[in-house]
Amino acid sequence: MDKTAVQKKRSRENGFFYNFLRRPLAMFGLTILLLEIILIFLLPVMLELDPYYMDTPNVNNAPSSEYILGTDTLGRDCLARLCEGGKTSIIVGTVAVSISIAIGVPLGMIAGYYRGAAEMIIMRLADIFMSLPTMILVLVLVAVFNPSLAVIIVVIGIVGWTGVGKLVYAATLSVRNKEFIDAAKAIGTSDFVILCKEVLPNVMTPIWMTLAFRISAAILTESSLSFLGAGVQPPQPSWGNIIAAAEQFVVLATRPWQWIPAGVCLFITVVAFNLIGEGIRDVMDPRTRKR
């Protein structure tokens, strides 16, 4: 009786959520992020905000009771655009990373499991992608396909496959010769089933460990692109293109309400994802858990 109780307690203490919920910084990040998502999606509905309506007589208004965060150079409500831009960032981050995973995981597994020609082709392809900085590659791709939200998401997703692919490839190499794979082969299981049921669960740990960092990196890439004018195109708002208003010296020097809130939100979001990421990594990585 005692023994099983101890075992139960021990297995619970090794559980992911048990440990994650006990990390104050990670929980702080998660709370901030959830709060922000709720605000971004609820505020526009509650206050009936329209990010595209131009209140022409009221351009460049400083924050007031009518416009909490003021208006921009075209008389649009800055708070409305801030929320709408936040939706863009969250969507780009999560969808782009899902695309990277959807491409990187199968390619990494195929390269690591079959080795030979598949390994050669896939890993050299990854080297080719990695020989250019992400930002440069994304800029070229976006310029070719004309920037739109969908194109940006897909491009950031595609460019991000190499990181995922290399991790999965390394993890697959370390499990491909284990006994349980040989056992599955011996009873005639097809390669496809082995990859899905035996290899996949064993190679996902490094992906979960880096997931939150990937999302924050994707959000940063999107906002940098939009800032450079090669990302989300106005009038559709994104935190990046809102901040780009500050490239005009007048806006930078005299109308801080038009660009600082978007930057602060972007920073908070990235911080939140990174705190969550560090929490996940510390919990999943046995080497750092005890620290």
Partner: peptide, 18 residues
């Protein structure tokens, strides 16, 4: 190191100019 890796460099650059 945490702030440095989290802050968007184009935003902090604008703040620094400001």
């Amino acid at each position: 190191s945490f702030i440095g890796s989290s802050i968007p460099n184009f935003f902090i650059a604008l703040v620094a100019i400001y």
